[in-house]
Amino acid sequence: MRIAAAPWIPGHPFDINLFKSWAISAANNLTGFYSISSSDYPPFYIYILYMVGKLASVSTMSHYFTLLIKLPSILADVATAYLLYKVARKYVSFEMSLMIAAFYTFNPAIFINSTFWGQVDSFFTLIVVAAIHLLSQNRMGWSTVLLAAAVLMKPQGIIYLPVLMFELFRVKRLKSWFIVAVSGWVTALLIVAPFSFGQDPMWLFKLYSRTLNEYPYASVNAFNFFSLLGANYKQDTSKLLLFSYHTWGMLFIVIVTLFSWWMYRKGRNGKFASVAALVQIAGVFTFSSSMHERYLFPAAALALLAYTYLQDKRLLWLSAGFSLTIFINTYSIFYNSVNGGAPYNFTLFMTSLLNVLLCVFLAKVVWDHCFLKVRHGGVQDCAVD
């Protein structure tokens, strides 16, 4: 279905054309890519675009360039659904596992991102979900490899790094710290080194700084708390009560991370990694500044993964709820985006409010597991110190 639809839907014109340009540049000169292009993407996904560019350079394949740009994310959709199915089979029935995979595969929020828009959030989500699953299985080395790849694909990969730190603090083993450090540095070196010849020693740091400072707004079409207040595309230096939107956003990141850490500490179990990752992305997207409309995308898959481990049906409702808001937000920007950001209308207001309510509901679910000792499916109960 995705492959049939993808060639007939041109995708987001700006993003598709940008990816095509980067794919051609990478195919012509991979190691000199950042010298000949204006890409604001970190290096990891450039390898994927390099392969796409090489395929598109074959005359018989050039007619399918748009499909080739979308294909990695389309394949990632299927791979993520299969991964969710395989993990679920260890903890829930075959029927439920199949329903989880089917829900993700045919989810309009997932479909519109890869097949219609042509964005790469599906590929990023596959890496994150696989990394969090491996972390839950105490395979910290491979989890670190994937998390490093996620950070080197999109800066928002940093949002998930605290979960790795929580697990390191939980296990309290020097060997684990060593494995994580070596795995992370080796992965980063292998990905970054080919692009570094002839570059300024600080080139990667400057790339991230430029990317992170590219949109200095309270919200960048993200239907979240700041958009709810009417601050979409408002400068993040503007004041909201005592502080600027940027300062409020940083404070909220600290609060969300501390809440995740509290939950993980109470849980005393690596299986809480998935719900901690869900809290991180849902909380940061909803209450931080400079968020884009697509940054919440991994929440749908992470909620399903968290359900598999905790077997709390409320997490299925959260996956459905986040899928709804992700779809509405993506649809609104893809089809109705205007210069200066999405208008403050009923759709923006209600979707932003729903995201805030979903975050509150997620906090309630976590609270029940970590304070009221809710028992679900044999997962070790949280203990109150």
Rank of each mutant, 00 (worst) to 15 (best):
S25C: 06
A26H: 05
N28Q: 13
F33S: 01
P43G: 00
Y45L: 13
G53F: 08
L55E: 11
S62I: 00
F65A: 12
Y85L: 08
F94I: 00
M99Y: 12
P108L: 00
N113P: 00
S114H: 11
F116W: 14
G118M: 09
G118F: 10
Q119G: 04
S122A: 15
H133E: 10
N138L: 05
W142I: 00
V145T: 09
P155H: 11
P162Q: 06
F166E: 03
E167N: 05
K172I: 02
W177M: 04
V180G: 04
P194E: 12
Q199N: 09
D200Y: 09
L207H: 10
R210Y: 04
L212G: 08
E214F: 13
S219E: 11
S219A: 15
V220P: 04
N224T: 03
V254M: 13
G270C: 02
L278W: 05
G283L: 04
H292Q: 12
E293Y: 11
Y295M: 13
F297A: 05
A301L: 00
Y309F: 13
L310S: 02
G321K: 12
G321W: 12
Y331R: 08
N336Q: 09
N355Y: 03
A363C: 14
V366G: 03
C370S: 15
L372P: 01
R375E: 15
V379D: 01
